[in-house]
Structure formats: structure tokens, C-alpha cells
Simulated assay, not measured.
Amino acid sequence: MIQLFHPLLTLIATASDSLLAKYVLYLKNENRILRDRIPGDIHTKPHERAQLLKYGKPLRKAINELITIVTPGTFHRWVREEKRGVKENGVGLDEANCALTCAAICAASSSVSATLWRRCTFTPS
């Protein structure tokens, strides 16, 4: 992975401002083409968001012109949430919700399938 980025970083480090602007324009268009090939929404993972925040926050308002993977509004929401210390909600059932769900199904039917009980196993992360 480092071998891939090293030539790109060397190229960027030796470029003039006008050439850098052309690089950014090219990369934005390349990203747009790739994004158009992907159907539906792109859902970022927490470590991907952290990377986008790490490199996007120093750009301040210029990020609005560059960001393509999410909307600028989403990016700025992430910045606000990071400042407030808001953490990502995990996907899936926690122990209490699982117990309530299983209890409701038990009340509605005479037995709970093995598949449901397997889905209701809770392992803290």
C-alpha cells in the first residue's frame, strides 16, 4: 500500500499550485466516475470516518468543494459529533432489546425457533 502512495506523494510534493489544482480536479472527476458506477448509498465505517475527519478538518470550508463520498453537511455533522463526544451506535440487538423481543415472541407463540435464539445471543464488544 505504501508503495502505491509514495510516487503520488513525490509527484504532489514537487508540483506547483496550478498543477496541484489540476490534480485535485482530475481526482474529483475520477471519484465521480467511480461513484456513478456504485448503485445506492455508500455507508462509511467508523475507521473510514475517522480518516476522513483527520484529513478533512484541516481543510476547513474548502472541504465543501472536495468531499464526494458524503455530503458536506454529513461531514460537518461528524465534526460536531466528534467535538461533543458522540459515539457511533452499533448495529444489532443489545441484551435488553433481545430479551424483550424474544419475550414478546414467546408470548405470541407457543415456542421460539432455534434461529431466533441464535440471533439473540449477546456478546458485549
Rank of each mutant, 00 (worst) to 15 (best):
G56Q: 09
F122M: 07
F5C: 13
I2M: 10
K87D: 06
R37F: 03
V24E: 06
N31C: 08
I2T: 11
L66C: 00
V70N: 08
H76A: 07
P72E: 04
F122T: 13
R119L: 13
R49D: 05
L27C: 13
T10F: 04
S109H: 08
R35W: 13
K83T: 01
A21W: 13
K57H: 01
A103M: 04
L25K: 10
M1A: 13
A62K: 13
L4R: 13
S18M: 12
Y23H: 15
I67Y: 05
E95S: 14
K83E: 02
C102H: 06
D36T: 00
N97W: 12
W117T: 03
K57A: 04
P46N: 02
R60N: 07
R118M: 10
G90K: 12
K54L: 11
W78Q: 00
R35D: 12
G56M: 09
L25S: 10
Y23S: 10
L59R: 07
G73T: 01
P58D: 09
W117R: 07
G85F: 06
L20K: 15
W117G: 09
M1W: 11
S18F: 15
R84S: 03
L66A: 00
W78S: 01
Q3T: 11
T71D: 06
P7Q: 04
K57C: 03
R119W: 04
A21L: 10
L53I: 07
R37S: 05
W78K: 00
I38K: 00
A108R: 04
P72G: 04
L27A: 15
A13C: 14
I63P: 08
G56A: 09
T68C: 03
V112R: 14
R37Q: 06
R49T: 02
R77E: 05
R84N: 05
I67G: 03
A108I: 03
T115Y: 15
R35V: 11
G90T: 05
L53G: 08
I38W: 05
H47K: 02
A62D: 11
N29G: 13
S111P: 08
R77T: 07
E65V: 08
I105H: 02
A50R: 02
D36A: 04
C120F: 12
D17M: 09
